[in-house]
């Protein structure tokens, strides 16, 4: 395809690009946020079991 053709196709697709943008941003936020939340929960749980005093 020629450059002009590609550019025309890109412009035509522009109106339809928003779903991809939202999908990409949403996915990134979900993955990174989910990873962080899971890390935090696991650290809290491990710290609780290691807390001094419950060493049986």
């Amino acid at each position: 395809m020629s450059v002009a053709g590609l550019l025309a196709a890109a412009r035509a697709a522009d109106a339809h690009a928003w779903p991809y943008v939202i999908g990409g941003w949403g996915l990134t936020a979900a993955v990174l946020g989910g990873y962080w939340a899971r890390l935090r929960a696991r650290i809290r749980r491990a710290e609780r079991t290691l807390a001094p005093g419950d060493d049986g």
Binding site: R11, A13, Y20, V21, W25
Partner: peptide, 21 residues
């Protein structure tokens, strides 16, 4: 990325994905 930056001349709104990619 989602609002402040203008869409790209060539890539349009899809450019916003590059801010993550």
């Amino acid at each position: 990325g989602l609002w402040g930056a203008p869409p790209d001349d060539r890539q349009g709104e899809a450019m916003r994905l590059l801010y993550l990619h």
